[in-house]
Design a protein around this nucleic acid. Structure first.
Lengths: 340, 340
DNA sequence: AATTTTTTGACGTACGTTAGTCAAGAAGTC
DNA sequence: GACTTCTTGACTAACGTACGTCAAAAAATT
């Protein structure tokens, strides 16, 4: 009644344990005919390798490195905390974290080049889009180290996968929400970005405008304000704009600087209060949801991002098959009432 | 550098392997003083038991039973598929599924009473709120079988935990969304329920009315239609109601029967089309989101619910400590644009 | 037929834990 | 002091797999 073991497979296939082991672990020195006998026995018995026992026996250890931008970015600090929190949930896996200056491609490339294949099997990095990073990544992969990008992707590079949300989809979702919030109240929609030079922000804007223009054409989308993810700048520019522009019924802030957005809205009389959608659940955006100054927050699950990154790296290191479903990070929507 | 083992604990505590094992597995015959020496060594070394090795050794098998309402409810069918899909992800765990007629407390109680402690260690059930179910559950627990409720809770019963979303919160979220969708278009809001016999529907209604009444008082909430989670009944009653009631600007369907809702709306001219919020992402609600007849879907992650239920039952059967964070199932919001 | 090469089997040790037996030692009781 | 009971240690087999060594068998090459 219990699960078949390699012993059963060996018996059914009429070969020895060693041979089954050789086939199972892809070691050489087994005739094709014997291999298929074993494969047939496995199929027939429905044998599945006991992973716990396998890991126990091989005492495999995955040594992973996460490279994250440093500085006061609370999303990144949250990611880091998440890594620490999950660390000892991973048996057989040792995770280290390095910080590099934000938006500094040279520093990132440097960090990548310094990774020692002797003590690291896989790397997850928040990518800065640049040629030297691509080059450093290629070099890293040349050393046989697995690599995935996290949160921010680096397309057409040697990175093997990307772990993060679809930012176009995130922008579309924001538009879908904001459009419905303002559907019976035509007016203007303000956009607050960090900088259009950052890939994620550009993608979110794209998605947002796609949906708003086609589905809610009565609304007028204003040209985006650039706030450089700085709450001071965001607050000042947005307050300025709001006082000089009548009929703003909605605001979508697609970068950081949520405190600035909240401040700018606070100065408005209640009847002029626009619907507001921002990104990332943090202490501040949470507070703003609760006191009613924000209507919705688009979020990505940091815990899941870390989990997926680790699992993906493990699979890449082992060369084992990858489940395409398990990798997806969803675009989450939070209102005041479904906060975790 | 590698993780400490019981050998290390024994050495540090100055006792034998056997003694460490006795302490670890709560076997009797160890003096209090020795126990604390071992505990101190464990703390000092940061020892964590290697679960893989432990399970391998004890060859433990958890035999779990899931009791779900039968019938065409696609949410429940989806749950069932999810169980099948995850089945062989669980080593050491055998899962069976039984169906009972929906909303039939006698049948559920019967099924509970028939559970054999000889072949079942734990049960997960979708509860119908009733005294005879409570009695049957108490009897089940008396046989030493662990029990958790799934999706719909049964408070003040012998069930040890509940796995599912906070349904009051789900109702509040629906109101928060629908209220915002209709904010600038005062009118009537229709409620479609399955049956007030199941706790989750009653709770959703409660949360919904709380928020709508207090935050969006201009809207008039109509008395709920009972559709018994049957698309035919839901469709007929809702279509009837809509044709006889002017000014319906929003619909919240808090049970199953999404196809009925979609059908009833389809007959309306576009300008009378209300905003619609329903529960559970299924093939049909998904389609309805895509073609624009539904605006939002409140969802619970079935895969996660199954996972949590299984882990919880395992922990309860073992009497091992339970992580209170890991159990939470979030109230998810889906629009057309963030569908997975 | 003699040889090399390839393929297979037999066997042992290890991974960390569980769980049992048996005996030695400590502590308590009369 | 003789006795019982409690506590502890030493040892062993087992769980299912990995992986190494060595020799035997089979096949391919001269």
């Amino acid at each position: 009644m219990s699960r078949p073991t390699i012993h059963d497979v060996a018996r059914v296939a009429g070969v020895s344990l060693s041979t089954v082991d050789r086939v199972l672990n892809g070691r050489e020195g087994v005739k094709g005919a014997t291999q298929s006998r074993v494969a047939e026995a496995i199929r027939q018995l429905g044998y599945e390798r006991n992973i716990a026992a396998a890991n126990l026996s091989r005492k495999r250890r995955y040594r992973l490195l996460f490279i994250l931008p440093g500085g006061g970015n609370s999303f990144m600090r949250g990611l880091e905390q998440e890594i620490v929190a999950q660390m000892d949930a991973w048996e057989f896996t040792v995770i280290s974290v390095t910080n590099v200056p934000a938006f500094d491609d040279a520093a990132l490339a440097d960090a990548l080049r310094r990774v020692d294949p002797q003590e690291t099997d896989g790397v997850a990095l928040v990518a800065t889009d640049s040629a030297i990073v691509r080059a450093a990544l290629a070099e890293l992969r040349g050393k046989g180290i697995a690599a995935v990008t996290l949160v921010s992707d680096l397309p057409s590079s040697q990175r093997q996968r990307f772990v993060g949300i679809d930012n176009v989809q995130a922008g579309r979702t924001a538009a879908s929400l904001l459009g419905r919030f303002c559907r019976w109240r035509p007016g203007r929609i303000a956009l607050v970005a960090g900088s259009m030079l950052v890939r994620d922000h550009a993608e979110r804007r794209l998605g947002f405008e796609q949906v708003l223009r086609s589905e809610f054409p009565v609304q007028e989308v204003l040209p985006p304000l650039e706030g450089f993810d700085d709450q001071e700048i965001v607050g000042d520019r947005l307050a300025d704009m709001l006082s000089g522009t009548p009929g703003v019924v909605g605001i979508y802030s697609l970068g950081a600087g949520n405190r600035g957005v909240a401040r700018a809205i606070a100065s408005l009389p209640p009847e002029r209060r626009p619907s507001v959608v921002v990104h990332e659940l943090t202490t501040y955006s949470r507070e703003a949801l609760l006191d009613g100054s924000f209507d919705a927050v688009i979020h990505q699950d940091r815990a899941q991002e870390i989990r997926v990154a680790v699992e993906l790296l493990q699979a890449l290191i082992d060369g084992s098959p990858i489940d395409p479903d398990g990798q997806r990070i969803g675009v989450e929507v939070y209102l005041r009432d479904n906060l975790p």
